[in-house]
């Protein structure tokens, strides 16, 4: 196990290099001159001399690889550069949003898991019964309903029609409810389906029929054998769903004005504040990669037979 962890950690290095390279490329392919963008974002009159000076300050007159190397060097010291807009360090801005996004995403994740695990197992056990069809139908609806549409429909009925919740979340616990639900529902719908498939795959194996034939109780088989064997694939599904969650949080945060990373990213896109966008993308990708690594390790702990 120890060897495996070390190996995975070593594999992480080229991965993160790749992420940083792609993200750096993002700024490089953006239309226009970064120096000019920074100046105009700060509202400085752009003259030839100022432009040349800024270019030199930002190191734009050097070759691409050198620029990337420098940027990476700063990145390793957790220095993501300065925001074009107001000159504050990017990591400060990100740190401010991170807590809010974490609260939202973690809430939505827990809600989705708490709903979808029992329902997924239940529908698998009750395969092709009425309750199975009902739950699957609701999940089908949830799958076809994009989260931004759900958010707006919820907002219309619960905030505007009956005034049960504030329209703008702005950090209050009551305001957090709707964004969490809007983020969790489509995710949960998908998870129910996937958990159902994972559990069914185990339920249809020979060892289950064997155990039943020997008179082992259904509940015992389900909780002691089936779930135990289905757990690694369920954990993998949960890990992958974090990616959907991080992407969805951008949309949901900008609808409910939740002051998290997603809203920061959208504001930065509007303001053409590229260093912040870069920081956001790197943070999200690194989170996702680390989560995936942890899921893989978790799977291996749960099922020592897994190799590579």
């Amino acid at each position: 196990m120890k060897k495996y962890v070390v190996k995975r950690l070593v594999q992480l290095i080229p991965m993160i290099l790749g992420i940083t390279f792609l993200t750096f490329l993002l700024l490089y392919i953006s239309p226009g001159d970064p120096a000019q963008k920074r100046l105009s974002a700060q509202g400085v009159a752009v003259t030839k001399e100022v432009l040349a000076q800024t270019r030199e300050e930002m190191g734009l007159d050097r070759p691409f690889i050198k620029q990337y190397g420098d940027w990476l060097f700063h990145l390793l010291q957790a220095d993501l550069g300065l925001s074009y807009k107001d000159g504050t360090p990017v990591n400060q801005k990100l740190a401010r949003g991170m807590k809010n996004t974490f609260v939202l995403a973690a809430g939505a994740f827990l809600l989705a898991v708490a709903v979808s695990l029992p329902l997924g197992i239940y529908t698998a056990v009750r395969k092709n019964r009425f309750s199975d069809y009902c739950i699957r139908f609701i999940c089908f609806l949830g799958n076809a309903l994009p989260n931004f549409l759900l958010a707006i429909v919820l907002m219309y009925f619960l905030c505007i029609r009956i005034n049960a919740f504030p329209v703008i979340a702005k950090g209050s616990l009551q305001g957090l409810f709707l964004p969490t639900v809007a983020l969790a529902f489509p995710l949960a719908s998908r998870l129910v389906r996937q958990v159902r498939v994972a559990v069914l795959k185990q339920l249809e194996t020979d060892y289950v029929s064997g155990a039943r034939a020997r008179g082992v109780k259904k509940g015992y088989i389900l909780f002691r054998n089936v779930l135990h064997n289905a757990l690694p694939s369920i954990v993998t599904l949960l890990g992958l769903s974090v990616g959907t969650l991080l992407g969805g949080s951008v949309v949901i945060e900008s609808i409910f004005m939740w002051p998290g990373l997603g809203k920061l990213a959208m504001d930065s896109i509007t303001a053409r504040d590229y260093p912040v966008i870069q920081g956001f993308v790197i943070l999200m990708a690194v989170t996702y990669v680390v989560v995936n690594l942890l899921t893989d390790l978790g799977c291996r702990l749960l099922d020592p037979r897994i190799k590579e």
Binding site: L27, T244, V281
Partner: peptide, 21 residues
């Protein structure tokens, strides 16, 4: 492929569309 899959899909799409304008 590995590199691209390291990003949450929608996050990358938003960033690319946002940066390209």
């Amino acid at each position: 492929v590995d590199m691209l899959l390291a990003f949450p899909q929608l996050v990358l799409a938003i960033a690319v569309a946002g940066v390209l304008g």
